[in-house]
Simulated scan of single mutants.
Amino acid sequence: MTPRIEPLSEPYPPEVAERLATLMPPGQEPIRLFRTFVRNLPMAAGLNAWGRYYLSRQLSLSVRDRELVIDRTTARCGCDYEWGVHIACYADRVGLTRAQVRSIAHGSPSDPCWTTHDAVLLEAVDALHDSATIDDQLWPRLVAEFTHAQLLDLFLLAGWYHAISFAANAARVEPEDWAPRLADLLP
């Protein structure tokens, strides 16, 4: 699939190089998504505030919970790009097993690889994706596992990664060469 919006390549204008440097950890080459986003510098500047919050320790969700929300949201959106980057960079760090990665991509929260905590989190992501709300049957199970602050972070995190998925999919950002793809895990 050909990208609809080509990522910028070096040499970058100074203001683009500066923005890319703020989006990536020191010493790492900018990923295709960010090189695409810098085609709109004011929008890319806004990524710092939101992106850094959702990838920071300020988020009230644990790193594992955060990754489950991101991975399931991007999988449900069919976003090979963002799903693959997060699986490649974080799945091992947060202790996701191969069965869990496969379940995130193509399974269900009721798969036997999930704890009750993980399953209700994934159910919330699915509910938000499918209906843009949480029904009265799921709500009590969520508040038994998460604080109100954590739930608010969960809701906005899922929405943020819907937006990232929409942009990556619509612009047809090519997956990174080192990242897996959703189809890699089809049975």
Rank of each mutant, 00 (worst) to 15 (best):
L121S: 03
G51W: 06
V69G: 00
T133R: 04
P42D: 10
A45R: 07
S62G: 09
G84V: 01
D118E: 14
G95W: 10
S9T: 01
A144N: 12
L186C: 10
I104G: 15
H117G: 01
H162R: 13
S103Q: 07
A149N: 08
E176H: 01
A163Y: 11
R98F: 11
F34R: 01
A158D: 08
L61G: 13
V16R: 10
L186P: 01
L68T: 02
G159M: 11
L122W: 01
L61N: 08
R32C: 00
R35C: 00
L33T: 02
H148E: 15
T147H: 09
T74M: 15
T133S: 13
Q58H: 11
A105N: 13
E176W: 00
S103L: 08
C113F: 12
F166N: 14
A44T: 04
L186H: 15
F155C: 13
P13Q: 05
S108K: 07
I5S: 03
S62C: 03
C89P: 04
W83L: 00
V120S: 04
H162Y: 03
I87S: 05
A119I: 13
D177A: 10
E176D: 05
L122A: 06
D184Y: 04
Y12C: 03
E123Q: 04
W178F: 07
Y54N: 04
D135G: 11
H106W: 02
P25Y: 02
D111Y: 05
E176P: 05
R52I: 00
R102H: 03
V173F: 15
T97H: 09
A183M: 15
A127T: 07
V125A: 06
E15T: 12
P13M: 05
L47C: 02
Y53G: 12
E67F: 05
A99W: 09
E6K: 13
A44D: 00
P42A: 06
G107H: 06
L121M: 05
A44M: 03
C113V: 09
Y54A: 04
D71S: 08
P30H: 00
L128E: 02
P25A: 03
D111H: 13
S165Q: 03
R4C: 15
S108I: 04
G51M: 02
R172G: 11
N169M: 09
A88N: 10
L20Q: 06
G159Q: 14
P187Q: 08
Y54D: 08
I70N: 05
V85D: 06
N40G: 15
S103G: 14
G46Q: 00
W160Y: 12
